[in-house]
C-alpha cells in the first residue's frame, strides 16, 4: 500500500487473472483467423487483412468489456473479481490495439511514397463526405488516448498526479471508446457484404451504454430525518458486508456490520476512489474490492504500517432503525461502533 515501492504487486489472483486474459486473447485471435481462412469464409481477404481485423475486433471487444465491468460489478457482486485487475485488462487492450495499428501501417502504408504515418493521415482527406470519411483518424486518436492511459496506469502516476487529476485523465477512456465506435462505424462496418461485425459492434456499443444507464438507475435512494438519514433496520446489513447510503452533495457512506456492530466510513477508497461499500471485511478490516486496500471499521485508518485514512461517520439507533449523521468526521477519527445485537449469517 504506502510504505514501500514495488513496480507491480503481483499475487496469485493477479497472475491467474492475467493468464486467463492472455489465453482468451490468443484463443480469440486463433479462432477468428481459423474462421476467416476456412473454405467458404467470405469475403476472401488476404492473411494480413484477416490478422488486422482479428486484432482490431479483439481490441474493440476488450474495450467494451473494460467499460462494462464497472456497471456490471455495481449491478451484481459476482462480477467484482473482474474489477480487481481492470487496469491490466486496459493495458492488454492497448497492446492489442497497437498490434492492429501496426498491421495496418505495415500492410497498407509501408509501400507508400511517403512516410507511413504521413501517408496514413494524407491518403484520404475526404472530411466533407460521410461515405468514405477518413475513419483512420478516429482510430489513431483513440490509440493515442489508450497509449496515454496505459503509460499512466501505474500507481506511481496516480500518486504523482493526485487521485482527482488521474481520475479525470482516465475518464478520457470514454472519449477513446466513442472514437473507436466511429472508427469501426465508418470503416469496417461499411463493408458491402453483411458480416458478423456489423451486428456485434452495434450490440456491444449499445450494450455498454445500456449497462451504464441501468447501473445509474440502480443507485440507492435514502430518506432524511432531522438532518440524520434513516438507513432502516440493522438486519438490512449482512455480517462482514455493507450497504451504501447516498448523502447530500453526491457523496456516499458505507455502513459495515462486523461482529454485531455497525461502523460507517466514506464509500471512496483513499487509493483510487474504489467503492468500499462493495467490499467486505477481511481479517477485521474493510477491504476495497478494487485493489485490496484495507481500513479499520472504527476509525477508517489502514492498519500499521500503512497510512491511508478515510472519513468516518456517526450512527445511532432509534426505534429499531439505524440513523446516519451525514456530516463526516475527520479522516481517521475514531467512532465507537454501534452495537446492534446478534450477527447475521
Amino acid at each position: 500500500m504506502s510504505v514501500r515501492y514495488t513496480p507491480v504487486g503481483w499475487n496469485a489472483n493477479k497472475i491467474v487473472y492475467d493468464a486467463l486474459l492472455v489465453a482468451a486473447i490468443v484463443a480469440y485471435i486463433l479462432v477468428f483467423i481459423w474462421a476467416a481462412e476456412r473454405p467458404g469464409g467470405a469475403p476472401p481477404y488476404d492473411d494480413a487483412t484477416i490478422r488486422m481485423r482479428a486484432f482490431g475486433s479483439c481490441a474493440f471487444l476488450m474495450l467494451s468489456v473494460v467499460l462494462a465491468i464497472g456497471p456490471l460489478a455495481r449491478l451484481d457482486r459476482r462480477f467484482l473479481p473482474l474489477l480487481y485487475n481492470r487496469r491490466h485488462f486496459g493495458v492488454a487492450t492497448c497492446v492489442v490495439a497497437f498490434t492492429h495499428a501496426s498491421y495496418v501501417l505495415g500492410w497498407y502504408f509501408a509501400f507508400s511514397a511517403h512516410d507511413p504515418y504521413a501517408a496514413l493521415l494524407t491518403s484520404n482527406t475526404s472530411y466533407a463526405r460521410l461515405a468514405g470519411f477518413p475513419f483512420e483518424i478516429f482510430g489513431l486518436a483513440a490509440l493515442v488516448i489508450l497509449l496515454l492511459l496505459a503509460v499512466t496506469s501505474h500507481d506511481f502516476w496516480l500518486s504523482f498526479m493526485s487521485a482527482p487529476v488521474w481520475k479525470a485523465l482516465h475518464m478520457s477512456v470514454y472519449a477513446a471508446y466513442t472514437l473507436v465506435v466511429a472508427h469501426v462505424a465508418f470503416g469496417a462496418l461499411l463493408a458491402p457484404v453483411l458480416q458478423p461485425l456489423q451486428i456485434v459492434v452495434p450490440a456491444c456499443a449499445l450494450g455498454v451504454v445500456a449497462l451504464h444507464a441501468l447501473a445509474a438507475r440502480a443507485e440507492p435512494a435514502s430518506s432524511e430525518n432531522q438532518g440524520w438519514i434513516v438507513v432502516g433496520a440493522p438486519d438490512r446489513i449482512a455480517e462482514g458486508r455493507a450497504i451504501v447510503v447516498p448523502v447530500e452533495g453526491g457523496e456516499s457512506v458505507a455502513i459495515f456490520r462486523h461482529e454485531g456492530r455497525l461502523s460507517a466510513i466514506a464509500n471512496a477508497c483513499a487509493h483510487q476512489n474504489g467503492p468500499l461499500g462493495e467490499g467486505r471485511i477481511v481479517d477485521g478490516c474493510i477491504t476495497c474490492p478494487w485493489h485490496g486496500f484495507q481500513y479499520r471499521p472504527e476509525d477508517g485508518c489502514s492498519p500499521p504500517p500503512f497510512t491511508e485514512k478515510v472519513a468516518t461517520y456517526n450512527l445511532r439507533l432509534e426505534n429499531g432503525a439505524v440513523l446516519l449523521d451525514p456530516k463526516p468526521n475527520a479522516r481517521g477519527q475514531r467512532v465507537e461502533p454501534l452495537a446492534v445485537g446478534e450477527t447475521l449469517a
Partner: peptide
C-alpha cells in the same frame, strides 16, 4: 454512440468498394 452508428449505417449503401480495396489504393500507388 447511437448517432454515430446510425450515420455509419446510412453511409453503408454508398460504400461501393470493400475496405481492403479502398485502403490498398496508396499501397498500390506507391
Amino acid at each position: 454512440i447511437p448517432l454515430i452508428l446510425l450515420a455509419g449505417w446510412f453511409a453503408r449503401p454508398h460504400a461501393r468498394v470493400d475496405l481492403p480495396e479502398r485502403l490498398s489504393a496508396p499501397r498500390e500507388a506507391g
